[in-house]
Design a protein around this nucleic acid. Sequence first.
DNA 1: CCACAAGCTGACCATTTGGTCAAATGAAAT
DNA 2: ATTTCATTTGACCAAATGGTCAGCTTGTGG
Lengths: 215, 215
Amino acid sequence: MQENARFSGKAATRRTDIRRENERLILTAAEKVFAEAGFGGATMQLIADMAGLPKANLHYYFATKEDLYRRVVQEIFEIWLDAAASFDAASTPAEGIGAYIEAKMAISRRHPHGSKVWAAEVMQGAPVIQDYLETTLRDWTDNRARVIQGWIDAGQMAPVNPRHLLYMLWATTQHYADFGHQIETLNGGAPLSDRQWQEASETVKTIILRGVGLG
Amino acid sequence: MQENARFSGKAATRRTDIRRENERLILTAAEKVFAEAGFGGATMQLIADMAGLPKANLHYYFATKEDLYRRVVQEIFEIWLDAAASFDAASTPAEGIGAYIEAKMAISRRHPHGSKVWAAEVMQGAPVIQDYLETTLRDWTDNRARVIQGWIDAGQMAPVNPRHLLYMLWATTQHYADFGHQIETLNGGAPLSDRQWQEASETVKTIILRGVGLG
DNA sequence: CCACAAGCTGACCATTTGGTCAAATGAAAT
DNA sequence: ATTTCATTTGACCAAATGGTCAGCTTGTGG
């Protein structure tokens, strides 16, 4: 009874559980508020209300608003990095690019808030995650660009600038998260259905794969 | 001497010139500040400083921060609508889509701030321009989707969902403005050169045109 | 059961910010 | 020249906000 003290829907009692769950509660609320209001427009009070906690409690777990924000940005970044696995695991260009598009589309659907927070952060010049861009993201990009160039050199796909291809992949997939509201409005005010998400994913995949000579 | 009282680099003296020039000064500063800080992070003081005017003067020309913001968003929207001309004027799908991509890429380069402001506005649920989405943008989109569908029905291009194709065009072109900072970082910290912009435009055009069977 | 540490929170504060206003200045019509 | 109205701006204010803190409650190891 010492392990796994929590079950059912009851709140956690163990110290470690309390911390972990409250941090999760706060991070989830923060992700949404930062996405909907931007860093400047978000208020700790709003995040607290959404998390169902007193504002002072937020500052117990996260010293400053910026600390909280940084954590939110880091999380979506790590989720995206994981999606690279689908790219790397592939044995053919079509498979790799196709799987990557599907993975990123799935993330856009599941983590639209995080995607927006990242987008806003980058749009504002990446004031808090510039180092990530210069280290992790740069390495990631260089490596994948090299892989793509290898495919091109081997005659496995059409010769296109690998970097711009990567930008296209990011742009098209993240667009469904970042501009989800616009898409929803143009869809008659309704969120895309399962079927429509499938169609979006297929269309992006079809056009890009055929676009790089893999159709 | 009553007409055209202004010349050289001197400040305007005529009433109408004063108003027009100060509004332009403020709007240009506001566009940049809103893009770099978001609506919530932007302050009237910052905009005033950048425009070189006292804050109270801003409120003389624009009653509220939101009024000023709305004008900035409207401007980029109109610039984009104008780009539709290149789409409509074309006689073939390849020409229309190609010209539209080039026009939108040019706008991304020339008006990166406006693009970012629009992106942030949409990401936050379009609180101030929702009506534009539901009227002007919806009509625009419906019409172009119909044109594209016509091309498909006539066997002039591959069958792809016209709406998702439009989203791809928006996503890929605007990405170069909205994520310009990220691209610049991945480019070794330097902005894209003329040549690189050209290459970006060509790559996007090549992949998408070939992707819809127009390669 | 006790003592200590972790977790919680209402009340409070200094600062920032959007917006106001009255008085001053400048342009231009009569 | 005089009047009128647009323009300018320093000073000011009420509200909001990030953050602090002292004191309280609760979990937990001994």
